[in-house]
Design a protein around this nucleic acid. Sequence first.
DNA 1: CTGAAAGCGCTTACAG
DNA 2: CTGAAAGCGCTTACAG
Lengths: 342, 342
Amino acid sequence: MPARTGSQRPTLEQVAALAGVSRGTASRVLSGASNVSPSAIAAVRAAAAELNYRPNLSARSLVTGRTGLVGLVVNESNDHLFSDPYFAEVSRGAHDALSEADVALVLTLAGDARERDRIVEIASMRLDGLLVIHGHSDTELVAGIERVRVPAVFSGRVPIEGESKVWYVDADNRGGARLATDHMLGRGRRRVVHITGPLDMAAGHDRRLGWQDALDAAGLERTEAMVEAGDFSPASGAAAMRALLERVPDLDGVFVANDLMALGALQTLAEAGRSVPDDVAVVGFDDADAARASTPGLTTVAQPMADIGRRMAELLLQQLASPDTDPVHEVLATRLVERGSA
Amino acid sequence: MPARTGSQRPTLEQVAALAGVSRGTASRVLSGASNVSPSAIAAVRAAAAELNYRPNLSARSLVTGRTGLVGLVVNESNDHLFSDPYFAEVSRGAHDALSEADVALVLTLAGDARERDRIVEIASMRLDGLLVIHGHSDTELVAGIERVRVPAVFSGRVPIEGESKVWYVDADNRGGARLATDHMLGRGRRRVVHITGPLDMAAGHDRRLGWQDALDAAGLERTEAMVEAGDFSPASGAAAMRALLERVPDLDGVFVANDLMALGALQTLAEAGRSVPDDVAVVGFDDADAARASTPGLTTVAQPMADIGRRMAELLLQQLASPDTDPVHEVLATRLVERGSA
DNA sequence: CTGAAAGCGCTTACAG
DNA sequence: CTGAAAGCGCTTACAG
């Protein structure tokens, strides 16, 4: 007798009995097999409806070896990441694509090393695969995933440099950053500095490269003094902007690696008496809600976040269907959203 | 043979064989039962470690009747809700409490009626219970949950008015709103208007009541013209602020039902040439990241979001352990966070 | 097209 | 304290 009270849910056995067929036939009907007679189909469907039958997924999993569960791994050692719209949108895209395949998303937060190990363990026990969001390039997690051989797709290129052996979907961060910087250069800015994201994340690393590309292509001077690192939080953006104003007093543009930091930078600029966009142009990245609410509105680079999630899910499903395929990598285009700040 | 390739994971049978005991005894050791000999414990643990044994959770669920899976229901028919920090923090709190009990969170997004039905269906098939976040007072969802008798705990009072038959954990929205409004009144403001959240959400409804409480207690005039509804988005906050400035030109304070809308209101005030806090005091609600990044910093009401999630999880676990208990309701305290805007 | 049967990997009274 | 056995609810070759 199950521990759970009131679990007198109808079983396939009862559906079959009511329909006057065997359990095997009932199973075939409900799983949509082709080799069943029309009369059996009708009888079983009617019986299932009458009893309000819902299959016991644990029983199904036990025999199929599939749980219909995919882990959504969020590396939130950094508090700000989790409230980042990126997480929300990518999750939504993944959720939608997975729902269509009757696969559910299990939320797994990887705060520290202990939790990361735990995720790999949980994955090996009850998950068909993993969707890994963002992830400060986490070599341990990648190693753990490879060790237990659980299918996985990452959001963002992994690893940051060198050949990738894992599946991933990424936005064209480098191209987007180039777009942002070119936009300012095209409007006459000549001293465009950069506030980076965490450089151990592909997004941080690549956006920096895009900024470099633009400056180099324009033949402008580019020094280390023109770059200051942030951690994607508003406070870090404000601090980085202060450092840059100190080091490069004649700056007239700043490409900030995300919107949250750009908001912080905007505040610092206001406090320093520099008007935006007249004195200094500012472009962020992400097209976050907050980018719309700032004064002036933040010009930013939008990435197709929901599409990234959707493609991640599709690639995982594909990987589940045919394991041992070579890793697939996809890069999705970004676009500039002009508002008032540049 | 299971469909999944490479699923030659060791079974309990193999662990038992290696340990030289029966499957039953191995099971007892691994589940921490007390009636096992020390030597059996040692042998089984060693064997499990050597084989790197991980229990098959589907098999366990099949006999226990418990899946160890709890659904996190997010009503995101409103886009902004999902990127709200509330979601992130509550989820994190719930996740942490649940992890300790080896229970995993399944993300379920309730975008439309169809998805809502689907959630109830999924719940009845594979979830032990439901944690429902925010939820525009969704009577259909509540009805569906009661119909399939799945244990659930809501964040936020349900229903908005009248006796509640469901379990919930809520922040003291009314008290917090009172705190916010009193703060402005205490500093000499006399015309404090209010931008509400969706009034079909307990948070929106109760925060409005708190604002009323404060004005009434101070014996100040309070009219319908002093209230404008928003939907928790920055844009709606900006629009509401415009309407209020029109109707109540001599306003000197505004209590905004959340920070995102407060940011929008701040922008409108700036465009209208009203300085904050000199001309108009502004207080938000949530203590969102963005509240720190604005200029001036937003004075706001913080609610213990992670604690709400944690308590929700604990109450659900309690409900699972002893079903048919009377519903429990918990209200957690809020506090004022002073920054520059009031 | 269908039924009978085996089996997925576990837990849990039951007897001893 | 332990083993043998039943059984959780499904799917899937297999034979017909």
